[in-house]
């Protein structure tokens, strides 16, 4: 219900060249945005998958995480300690929670370069009517903007940037991350419907010599929680629920 309440539109987001690593995101206004999703259409959804499918995998990725959580991980010269990963994923989870509270798809996404957050992406599919505006794509553009602003070479920056995202990037985003030559992606739960890091296709490590470079993945960070948020989100929006029609109609009154 809350999802469809017509609040005032929040101000359009102005991207700050450098997003602070903490504090409220620009999108964290108290009034919920008017968001609409066709439950059938992936176009209106971000990289996150349907709750049911995700739930089934949550436990498995949680256990797979055990080996990697304790050690520092290096990928193409970029090394992140377990503490760092945890701290950034904590922030990403917080973003996802904020999104959920605002009736948005609960996905948190951060791009971190030299311990500095260059981008905080959120799904902008509805606002832009462009189905490719997943949080990761938005974040990539923010980093590009930052590079432009600071006179930095994008390739140099991306090659030392780590993506922290609460849901496995989809096939499109995984290919985009390859093209940007990002070395490392840390994520929460699997994306059973569109996942590009192994769930549907493994674009992250595929042999695609003309599509950037493969990247390393560390999956499973607080996967159950990430799934739980998606589950909550989809429960509110579940089109198969008998109440759905009524809810939509009520929403329409706005």
């Amino acid at each position: 219900m809350r999802l469809l309440r017509a609040g005032k539109q929040r101000p359009s987001r102005i991207r700050s060249p450098v997003c602070p690593p903490s504090g409220s995101s620009p999108g964290n206004s108290s009034c919920g945005p008017l968001t609409f999703r066709c439950p059938l259409s992936s176009a209106w959804l971000p990289a996150c998958a349907c709750s049911a499918a995700l739930v089934s995998r949550a436990s498995s990725c949680g256990s797979g995480m055990e080996e990697t959580t304790t050690a520092a991980v290096a990928a193409r010269g970029v090394s992140v300690s377990a503490e760092e990963r945890e701290a950034w994923m904590e922030k990403a989870m917080h973003m996802a929670k904020e999104a959920l509270e605002n009736g948005e798809v609960p996905v948190g996404c951060l791009m971190v370069y030299n311990n500095e957050v260059l981008a905080k992406g959120r799904n902008e599919v509805n606002q832009t009517k462009n189905a490719t505006r997943h949080a990761e794509m938005v974040a990539i553009d923010q980093v590009l903007e930052w590079c432009h602003h600071c006179g930095r070479t994008p390739t140099e920056v991306f090659e030392h940037t780590v993506l922290y995202v609460t849901v496995e990037p989809c096939i499109m985003c995984a290919a985009a991350l390859r093209l940007m030559k990002i070395p490392l992606v840390v994520y929460g739960c699997q994306n059973e419907r569109f996942g590009g890091c192994g769930s549907v296709l493994d674009i992250a490590s595929a042999d695609l010599p003309n599509t950037g470079t493969p990247f390393k993945c560390i999956p499973g960070y607080r996967a159950e929680e990430a799934v739980e948020m998606l589950k909550t989100f989809y429960k509110q929006e579940n089109p198969n629920a008998p109440k759905s029609k009524v809810r939509k109609k009520e929403g329409h009154k706005c």
């Binding site: 992936s42 490719t132 989809c170 096939i171 499109m172 290919a175 093209l179 569109f194 590009g196 003309n210």
Partner: peptide, 13 residues
Amino acid sequence: PCVMCAMALVHSR
């Protein structure tokens, strides 16, 4: 189209 573009077309229906 490449992988990114092909999947973008899936998302765009």
